[in-house]
Design a protein around this nucleic acid. Structure first.
Length: 569
RNA sequence: CGGGGCGUAGCGCAGUCUGGUUAGCGCACCUGGUUUGGGACCAGGGGGUCGGGGGUUCGAAUCCCUCCGCCCCGACCA
């Protein structure tokens, strides 16, 4: 491609609504532009990156035996009613009617469509297993789209669904997909982790998320400093913490006057006792399908509540905050809540099992109880509801755990029969009995990967594309387009590189040197060749985008040098 | 959905509080010239329903009402 003819509108300034590096550089570099909230156009270079990611995903999935299909983007409401998700999905599901008043939705995910496709066409265990996927547009009417391509409403996603006769076979496919995903993200040149995840609203038994490590990630992940253990903080476990100091000694179990002292920090100062020996109460309102109730969660004073784990522990749909007024109405004293004598449901964190000689609320304004003993509480009241924090110990090997931020770019689920049962999608097993398909589901955020790659790979000058997904491998910068010798040499090199199968652009625009260098850095081609004033001495320069280092190379050797650089692993 | 902010040329902004020539600046764009190793310079030029509608006023980008769009924090997020 000759840049003099390319549609790559780069700008010096970023649009004011771009905040994250990926958003700023993708817009400034002329890869994408925003059309509406959460909706983006892909310009030629952005489209090339997207297509490269897509091609790698397809190649690896096909290689693993999956088959690509393409489902309708507009899907009939009836299918969603069958699975029960029409009601459950909420406003994110964009619904509309056609001219004949038929109800449709824009597909946010395609479990229903895929089950409907397979249902009736696959009837026998002999036709299983089957893994079908598509790389197609999705639409979710997000309450708050943000971060450019990272959380859009319209986005490109690869979604795959596998169908099996048994759970064992589904688990085998799940492991195969995990391996395949690892190969995909490795080929994309990204630093990532596969982490244990919460299954969330989609349901199912086990799931793993693939996280691209980046500061700006929305997810917090827990990583072991020694072993392979990695988990989303929403699902992370830990080894039971040990007391950080010797336990305080209380001669009695009795109320203690603590005027206006509510926070653990204040109490810890007051008693000169480590927060670990306090019992912290977190009150939430738990919302269920049919009703809602106040639930009190109790933790060690140095722990925080992990809401997803807490929600799962009681099987609630969601947890919402409660006001002090609501608590008082229920006979609870905010700030001084004890795990004793409560009318409402209580849950204690596992770390409190067998706790003795601790300090908790007194169920009375301005009083705490010292010397409390929790060892007689019913086992059933305990659950793992605390957020794993930096410095906690690995549940697998006992080494120190660290926290990191990640961008979720892939998610694999052992789904089971939730959709096949609801939609009556069955096959006949060896005994001739009808059974629902055992399913797995596997997603990759394709357009999100474009942004994630930049979140992880950029500097103050612009994008630094991993080689596999760069829009082009190399740009030839003609320093002075009025210099016919430079132009002729650059043209020849351009043709030779194309001939050699290198993806190359020729910056033949009549711009000055600095302008072209800035564009090179902004767009982030892995390599640049500068054809400039040193050509008269028989030299050109090879620039690596990442290091921004320029190396003089004899003009006869540059072709070989570029080919070597691009092909080197 | 709750809280906050913004909307003036393709992009970034000033002007709005305190109403008053022809609405301005930088970048980008067009023409001519100079320049050519880090987003050049000189001269000339084009481009605006001041988000939409309504109102107040002799007069509205500016004040009032209303609708819309976009961004940020939070809630939410297979």
């Amino acid at each position: 491609m000759r840049l003099s003819q390319a549609f790559v509108p780069t700008t010096k300034e970023a649009p004011k609504d771009a905040a994250l590096p990926s958003h700023i550089y993708l817009v400034r570099g002329g890869f994408i532009n925003q059309v509406a909230s959460g909706i983006y156009n892909f310009l030629p270079f952005g489209k090339r990156v997207l297509d490269k990611i897509r091609a790698i995903i397809k190649e690896e999935l096909d290689n693993a035996g999956a088959q690509e299909v393409q489902l309708g983007f507009v899907t009939p409401c009836e299918l969603w009613e069958e699975s029960g998700r029409f009601k459950k999905y909420g406003k994110e599901l964009l619904r509309f009617k056609d001219r004949k008043e038929n109800c449709f939705v824009l597909g946010p995910t395609h479990e229903e469509m895929m089950v409907a496709l397979v249902r009736g066409r696959v009837n026998s265990y002999k036709q299983l297993p089957l893994n079908l996927y598509q790389i197609n547009l999705k639409f979710r009417d997000e309450a708050r789209p943000r971060f450019g391509l990272l959380r859009g409403r319209e986005f490109l996603m690869k979604d795959g669904y596998s169908f099996h006769a048994t759970y064992e076979d589904m688990e085998r496919e799940y492991r195969l997909m995990e391996e395949t995903y690892k190969r995909i993200f490795t080929r994309l040149g990204l630093e990532f982790r596969a982490v244990e995840a919460d299954v969330g609203a989609i349901g199912g038994s086990a799931s793993k998320e693939f996280m691209v490590l980046a500061q700006s990630g929305e997810d917090t992940i827990v990583l072991c400093s020694e072993c392979e253990y990695a988990a989303n903080v929403e699902a992370a476990k830990r080894k039971m913490p040990q007391p950080p100091t010797e336990a305080p000694e209380f001669s009695n179990f009795e109320p203690f006057y603590t005027p206006n002292l509510k926070s653990i920090e204040e109490l810890s100062d007051f008693f000169k006792v480590h927060p670990y020996f306090f019992v912290k109460a977190v009150a939430k309102k738990a919302v269920f399908d049919e009703n809602e109730e106040i639930v009190l969660f109790f933790l060690r004073g140095n722990d925080e509540l992990q809401e997803v784990k807490a929600k799962n522990a009681i099987g609630a749909d969601e947890l919402v905050d409660v006001t002090d007024e609501e608590l008082e109405k229920a006979g609870i004293v905010p700030g001084f809540i004890a795990p004793y004598e409560q009318e409402c449901r209580i849950v204690l964190d596992d770390a409190l099992k067998g706790a003795k000689g601790v300090i908790c609320g007194g169920n009375k304004k301005d009083y705490h109880l010292i010397g409390a003993d929790l060892s007689h509480f019913d086992e059933a009241l305990f659950a793992d509801i605390a957020a794993v924090k930096e410095g906690d110990l690995c549940p697998e090997c006992g080494a120190i755990l660290k926290l990191s931020k990640g961008i979720e770019v892939g998610h694999i689920f052992q789904l089971g029969t939730r959709y096949s049962e609801a939609m009556n999608a069955t096959f006949l097993d060896k005994e001739g009995k009808a059974k629902p398909f055992v399913m797995g589901t596997y997603g990759i955020g394709v357009s999100r990967l474009v942004a994630a790659a930049i979140e992880q790979n950029h500097d103050e000058f612009g994008c630094i594309w991993p080689k596999e997904i760069a829009p082009y491998h190399v740009t030839i910068i003609v320093s002075n387009t009025k210099d016919e010798v430079q132009v002729a040499f650059a043209n020849k090199l351009y043709e030779d590189l194309k001939e050699a199968g290198i993806e190359v652009v020729l910056d033949d625009r009549s711009e000055r040197f600095g302008f072209k260098m800035k564009d090179f850095e902004l767009i982030g081609y892995p390599y640049g060749v500068i054809v400039g004033k040193n050509l008269s001495e028989g030299k050109v320069q090879l620039v690596k985008r990442k290091s921004r280092q320029k190396i003089d190379i004899a003009k006869e050797d540059i072709l070989k040098a570029v080919i070597e650089a691009v092909n080197q692993k």
